[in-house]
């Protein structure tokens, strides 16, 4: 791999990292797991002046549940979530983790890095969107939460301001009975999703209290299937409500036909996966 020339800094504190980012602005890139950034460097699609390697910054590798709230630090690797024992109340996260890329990428890549990369085919953005989560940014003016729904601005564009660094992703505490599942159709393990569907449900008895449905790879960015979610809230899960949600989610998708499949196919798989995601709440992987 022969990237363009760049400067490399490995700060030991968040303050130091922030000041480097403030100094270099758009010319700086944060290196966490590097699983998206390094290929871009290799192809010379990205040629930043400075890489700020945050792997030496303490206090970012955590993931923990506090009062039901899941907090995932900027250096928490996918594999940490795959092997986690604290995700009983966050089944969607537990179900998505083993479907991220391949085992080698999972050893190194990070959830927060994936959110920041804002690839429309990134799986974690759908998961956090379905959960109603947010990203915590730290910048020159302190900390601020950015709701996931506002974090991704477009393909490979996030809402971080110059000098800001994403330090944590947060999923709120669920209420009632929890279920959730991530379904992903890929041509091969490690492939980007042809279609990915994140489903998160909170139920009280047989009523749905909260529904989150988000779609991966079927639009210019991750899509929240809001109408499908609303069709479920306050109602029981029946064949009819499930079917309605499936159709509304398919309508919300904006796929492009490519060598992974036609528009009609991808829409059909969205509906199929919403149906399966609502019908089956175990963690079994699909496809």
């Amino acid at each position: 791999m022969y990237p363009s020339r760049f400067r490399y800094e490995a700060p030991h504190s968040l303050d130091e990292a922030r000041s480097l980012l403030a100094q270099y602005g758009d010319e700086a890139k944060v290196l966490a797991g590097g699983q998206s950034l390094v290929p871009l460097l290799k192809l010379r699609f990205a040629a930043p002046e400075l890489l700020v390697d945050i792997n030496g910054v303490p206090g970012l590798g955590h993931h923990r549940v506090e009062a039901g709230v899941l907090r995932v630090g900027a250096l928490c690797r996918h594999v940490d979530l795959e092997r986690s024992s604290v995700l009983a109340r966050h089944p969607l996260v537990a179900s998505a983790a083993p479907l991220i890329a391949d085992p080698i990428v999972r050893n190194r890549g990070t959830l927060v890095g994936s959110l920041c990369h804002a690839d429309p085919q990134g799986d974690w953005a759908s998961v956090l969107l379905a959960l109603g989560g947010h990203v915590v940014a730290e910048g020159p003016h302190g900390r601020r939460p950015i709701p996931m729904a506002e974090f991704t601005l477009g393909p490979f564009q996030n809402a971080l301001r110059p000098g800001e660094i994403a330090v944590e992703a947060v999923a709120p505490a669920p209420r009632g009975q929890v279920s959730g599942r991530y379904l992903k159709l890929e041509r091969r393990v490690g492939d980007f999703a042809t279609v990915g569907v994140a489903v998160a449900l909170e139920t009280d008895g047989d009523r749905v209290v909260r529904a989150g449905i988000a779609l991966t790879g079927v639009g210019p960015h991750t899509i929240a299937a809001t109408a499908a979610e609303q069709a479920l809230v306050g109602r029981p899960l029946t064949a009819a409500t499930v079917e309605e949600a499936a159709q509304l989610a398919a309508e919300a998708s904006r796929p492009k036909g490519d060598h992974r499949g036609s528009v009609a196919y991808k829409r059909h798989v969205v509906a199929t996966f919403v149906r399966r995601g609502l019908a089956r709440t175990d963690l079994e992987a699909v496809a």
Binding site: K256, G257, D258, H259, Y265, H268
Partner: peptide, 20 residues
Amino acid sequence: VWQALQDGRDVSGMPPVRSD
């Protein structure tokens, strides 16, 4: 495979590079 099942017809050639 899905397309063939939908249409009951053959699917021939390279996977097309669509832009639909």
